[in-house]
Simulated assay, not measured.
Amino acid sequence: MTATLIDGKAIAERMRNETKAEAATLAAAGWAPRLVSVSVGDVAAAELYVRNQQKQADAAGVAFEARNYPESTSLEQLIGVLQGLNADPRVNGIIIQRPLPAHIPVKALQKIVHPLKDVEGMHPSSIGNIVYNDLVLGPCTAVAAVEILKTLPLQMEGLNVCVIGHSEIVGKPIAFLMMGLGATVTVCHHMTRQVAVHSRAADAVFVAVGKPGLVRGEMLKPGAALIDIGINRVEGKTVGDADFASCAEVAGWITPVPGGVGPVTVATLMNNAVLATRMQMDHYRAAFTAVG
């Protein structure tokens, strides 16, 4: 192995320490950050995520409440729940856990969460702000992946970047975030011909497709940074979208799976929680402060 392993857990810990300090400052001002997690039906699939979020929230000084609703809950009832959370000044962030029952379209719920409480960065306005390089509460996984790249000794301006995967919440936001930093970005997807031609020309490669072993060492430029965002289960093990062994022989830096983007994503969620709390505090103060 020639690549330097990127320690996502260490990056997450640094972020968490900063978040904890900010959370303490807000709590002293009477605005202790508080998250509410909303899940519907059988929570087994989301239980690990919720448990991890609870643990990370505790470490970051953010209050966390998990709410589970019966699978029979209607879309209209859930919209009412979210509207109540939007109106509650004691709630600073809302997380919608996936998967949801078939009769509950996740996008319909994401549109209901108030943009100031959208700590997941999934509201259309949060996604749209990235196009204008106005990153307030961005989608956590995309922001985390870019933050990891920024820790490396690479100059973002003019960097050749290849993004493999163009989902609305990961691939596309990464592309816009990197363009905002001055990088030259190529986005590859399932209709791209000869992905390797593009990835081999890149100084940094992000991959988020959901196909284990998709990126191999021969697809990388020697010394390039590889940020693997994929999460797949293969023979009882969690692996990414890259063939780690072959890629590690070529890349200059590589994120492990697990232990790479995942911990930084949760740390970004907690950072978004304190950012959202501060924005709400400023909003309420501006709205209700008497003008002399």
Rank of each mutant, 00 (worst) to 15 (best):
T289C: 12
N68M: 05
D243V: 07
T184Y: 07
I130M: 08
N271W: 10
G180Y: 08
T289W: 14
K55C: 14
Q77Y: 00
R14Q: 15
D88W: 04
F244S: 10
D228V: 11
R14Y: 09
L82G: 08
A29S: 09
G93A: 06
G84Q: 11
D88N: 12
I96L: 13
L275N: 13
K172W: 15
G128N: 01
Q54M: 13
A276Q: 01
T19Y: 03
V161S: 10
A204K: 06
V239L: 14
L85E: 12
Q77P: 02
H189W: 01
F244E: 12
L181D: 10
I96P: 10
Y49Q: 06
V209G: 03
I11D: 08
H283W: 12
D228I: 13
A12I: 03
S74A: 04
L154V: 15
L214M: 14
M281R: 13
I104R: 09
A63S: 11
P222W: 12
A175E: 10
C247Q: 13
K237P: 00
V197A: 15
L159P: 01
Y284P: 06
N160V: 13
V207R: 07
P99T: 06
G182I: 09
L48W: 02
T186F: 00
F176V: 07
K55G: 13
P173C: 03
M270S: 04
A286G: 04
M191S: 11
A27G: 07
E249V: 15
A28R: 14
I6R: 09
A45P: 00
V207H: 10
I127M: 03
E22L: 11
E120V: 01
T2K: 11
E65N: 01
D118R: 01
V197Q: 14
T192S: 08
V38Y: 05
A44L: 15
G213Y: 08
P99D: 10
P258S: 08
G236C: 05
C162E: 09
L181K: 10
T238A: 14
I11W: 00
P124A: 04
M270N: 03
K172H: 14
L78V: 09
K150S: 05
P124Q: 04
S126D: 05
K150E: 14
V239A: 12
E147R: 15
Y284I: 13
V62Y: 00
K211Q: 15
L275W: 03
E18F: 05
M179W: 08
E47C: 04
L5P: 00
P212A: 08
